[in-house]
């Protein structure tokens, strides 16, 4: 028996919003420790990795590990049926071929349940080693979304350069070029408004703006986004999901041909 209850169904809605641009379907791996998801986008350029810890749920029970392959379009339709203030419970029997979503209004006067068919998806898990990154940048998530949106008007690629002074985002194309420099914040009253850089060595990498824009669909999950970069390895874009977990996007760089 698997059962996970979340008082804020809006978290689940936001998680889905954050992944459905990149993935059509995904396997939710449920175990005693929580719910994990790892999947590559169709073109195998990026990887989404999400973790929701069991202790972050209001009630969590998972007697046996269960992998639930879900069509994210169908899941979106179902979660649209939940009000933001509803309490959501996901339930499945062991070896079930369906999952049930139960939505309860805060006053318990309306209770709805939606059963969704599960899918058998090929499991392709990539092993991601623990990595010390040369540069780790934290900045307001809304600022990062704005930068990605603004620069994607110029070109298909965004160059991210990180030095100890700050971080620079650049793009160039037919209409011209654009550079956005963010300096490290000197005085930080509010952490969520700060730009911070932890740098071992400067890094400059080029990425496809289309994917960066897709990652920013997670902006509503967190005030802060963390970018981790090292020479010649994928960028990691991480958003915390409240006190319950995180979503990380890994993006392969564009390389000299």
């Amino acid at each position: 028996m698997f059962e996970a209850r979340l008082v804020q169904s809006s978290i689940l809605k936001k998680v889905l919003e954050a992944i459905k641009d990149l993935l059509n379907e995904a396997t939710f791996d449920c175990s005693d420790s929580g719910i994990q998801l790892q999947a590559m986008d169709n073109s195998h350029v990026s990887l989404v990795s999400m973790n929701l810890r069991s202790d972050g749920f209001d009630k969590y029970r998972c007697d046996r590990n269960i992998s639930m392959g879900m069509n994210l379009g169908s899941m979106t339709k179902i979660l649209k049926c939940a009000a933001n203030e509803d309490v959501v419970t996901m339930k499945a029997q062991d070896n079930a071929d369906t999952v049930t979503f139960v939505f309860e209004s805060p006053n318990q006067e309306k209770v709805s349940d939606y059963e969704m068919k599960l899918m058998n998806l090929d499991q392709e898990h990539l092993g991601i080693p623990e990595t010390e990154y040369a540069c780790v940048v934290r900045l307001p998530a809304g600022e990062f979304a704005r930068i990605c949106r603004d620069l994607s008007q110029f070109g298909e690629s965004v160059v991210i350069s990180c030095t100890k002074e700050g971080v620079k985002f650049s793009s160039a194309g037919d209409i011209g070029s654009a550079n956005i420099k963010l300096a490290q914040t000197s005085n930080v009253d509010k952490e969520e408004l700060a730009v911070t850089v932890e740098m071992q060595e400067p890094v400059t990498l080029t990425f496809a703006s289309r994917y960066l824009n897709s990652f920013t669909k997670a902006t509503s999950l967190s005030n802060v986004v963390q970018l981790s970069m090292s020479p010649d390895v994928p960028l990691v874009v991480e958003y915390r999901i409240g006190e319950i977990g995180h979503i990380r996007y890994y993006l392969a760089p564009k390389i000299e041909d």
Binding site: S43, V45, L126, G127, Y250, A252
Partner: peptide, 14 residues
């Protein structure tokens, strides 16, 4: 010209 690398070039199947 820069070519788009694939994520599987960096991480391998578990």
């Amino acid at each position: 010209f820069r070519a788009q690398a694939a994520i599987v070039n960096y991480y391998h199947m578990d």
